[in-house]
Design a protein around this nucleic acid. Structure first.
Lengths: 108, 108
DNA sequence: TTGACATGTCGAAACATTCCGATATATTTG
DNA sequence: CAAATATATCGGAATGTTTCGACATGTCAA
């Protein structure tokens, strides 16, 4: 015999189209190989723009643009130290997203 | 004293830029509110193009295009029955991705 | 066979993203 | 101060995505 709670856990309600719109915005920002690499690195440690740029094999002014984008949407924050800018992750759910991506696309 | 295995589990290698490129392609396809809604529904049951279109509040010929895109990249498959086409999920990792999205963006 | 229905496909307009050179700002070093 | 370094920003060309109307295909029922 099912209880009300059983029914809810069996079929949770659909997410609203509005919330899925927000989700889609965030996924669009994730959907770039250089930004994924930056997030993967920043989930482990903090890095400067130049270090991230080098890891992505791109000019640092382009890394700066990717980082600005990810900061504007609440994924990252930065701290300026001298002439360097250290970025780090603030959106904790990125840990889970990256775990999903690593589970599917591996460490290859 | 750390073993080699400890070191690996503490700092797994970065995913290659090539693999992250594939991941980005998949995320781009996920990054659309109507496609997210379709996937969320199809993870629970199979539906026709018309049913999915109605749930997304879009004309069915546009639902058909979204479904074709998701089929081409290996997320979905379909079975024709009479004049209907039933779609269902074949990429099992979508369960985990959708769980992440629901955890972050809720059932609101 | 005819008409209604469900789905699929095409092409173009509208829109968004990516990339890059040029330039700007701020900081450290000599 | 001047030069070098690190980061940030701007504008535009190239490219990709989304949407939509129009039309094509295939199925069912009368």
């Amino acid at each position: 015999m099912n209880t009300a709670i059983d029914d809810i856990t069996e079929t949770p309600p659909l997410t609203s189209l509005e919330a899925l719109g927000q989700a889609a915005e965030c996924l669009k920002i994730l959907a770039h190989p250089h930004r994924l690499r930056m997030i993967q690195m920043l989930l482990r440690d903090r890095y400067t723009v130049g270090e991230l740029a080098q890891a992505c094999e791109i000019p640092s002014h382009m890394a700066s643009e990717h980082l600005r984008l990810m900061q504007r949407c609440g994924f990252l924050t930065n701290q300026k130290e001298g002439r360097n800018a250290y970025y780090q992750v603030v959106e904790t759910h990125l840990t889970h997203f990256m775990a999903c991506i690593e589970a599917r696309f591996g460490q290859a």
